[in-house]
Amino acid sequence: MHEELGDLERELMLIGRHQAMGSLRADPGGRLERSAYTLLSRIEAEGPMTIGQLAEAFNLDTSTVNRQTAAMLRQNLVERIPDPAGGIARKLRITGEGLRRLHHDREWSLNGLASVLADWPQDEVAALARLLTRLNRSIEGKEGRSWPRPGDRGTAGR
């Protein structure tokens, strides 16, 4: 099993490399930074969140998230709003521009995946998606933090 784990570790590392390399390709719309894409995706999935909630969700220091969200505020990707539940901390909500840019980047990514997987049978694409979801859920279980997915609203690890 050690050899298989080595193979898996290498391939996961390469997936990260390919994703990073993809962001270097020309894109006329201007891509979001990886941290902005990830934070916006989380806010889109869960709704408005405080900096503290985002820091907890990603296991990051609040100062790190504060710097990342400050850049997103300057770019009009998010806006601060009062906590709808009446809490003291203000929450970050995606702006129309942030949603437009997030969806643009997601479409760019989906098109890239479609191109790479064009000659794969649909059942193999579905199997890969199921296995990666299972892997991510196992990691999330170990960390005690889950990523909200469609169909399991209200079960995010917060």
Rank of each mutant, 00 (worst) to 15 (best):
D83S: 04
D105T: 12
R74S: 10
Q75V: 07
L92S: 02
I94Q: 07
L77G: 13
G86Q: 09
I81L: 07
V78C: 10
H103V: 10
D83A: 07
R101E: 14
E97M: 04
D105G: 15
H103N: 13
G87E: 02
H104K: 07
R80N: 06
D83E: 13
R90H: 11
A71V: 12
T95E: 00
Q75A: 09
H103S: 10
R80Y: 05
R106I: 15
A89L: 14
T95Q: 04
R74P: 06
A85W: 10
A85S: 14
I81Y: 03
G96D: 03
G86M: 00
R90Q: 03
E79N: 04
P84C: 10
H104T: 00
G86K: 11
D105N: 15
R80D: 06
L99W: 04
Q75N: 11
R101V: 15
P82A: 07
G86E: 09
G98A: 07
T95D: 02
T95W: 09
G87K: 12
L92V: 00
H104L: 03
G98C: 01
D83P: 05
L73V: 04
R93W: 01
R101A: 15
H103A: 13
I88A: 07
H103L: 13
I81Q: 03
G87D: 08
P84E: 09
L73R: 11
P82C: 12
G87P: 05
L102C: 12
I94D: 09
V78M: 15
H104Q: 01
D83F: 05
G96L: 03
N76Q: 15
L73Y: 05
L77H: 11
R101Y: 14
Q75T: 05
M72D: 05
D105H: 13
V78Q: 14
N76K: 12
V78H: 10
N76P: 09
P84N: 00
R74W: 05
I88S: 01
T95G: 00
I88V: 03
G98N: 03
R100L: 02
K91T: 01
E79I: 02
G86R: 08
K91M: 03
D105S: 14
A85R: 14
H104D: 08
M72T: 04
K91Q: 04
A89Y: 06
Q75G: 09
R74K: 11
I94E: 06
R100N: 12
E97C: 02
A89T: 09
N76T: 13
H104C: 08
N76V: 13
K91F: 02
D83Q: 05
R93S: 14
L77N: 12
G98V: 00
R106K: 15
G86N: 11
A85N: 15
A71R: 12
L102K: 12
H103E: 13
A89Q: 06
A71F: 07
D83N: 14
G96Y: 05
L102T: 08
R101F: 00
A71I: 01
D83C: 03
M72P: 07
R74H: 10
R106Y: 15
R74V: 08
P84T: 06
L77A: 13
E97Q: 02
D83Y: 04
H103I: 08
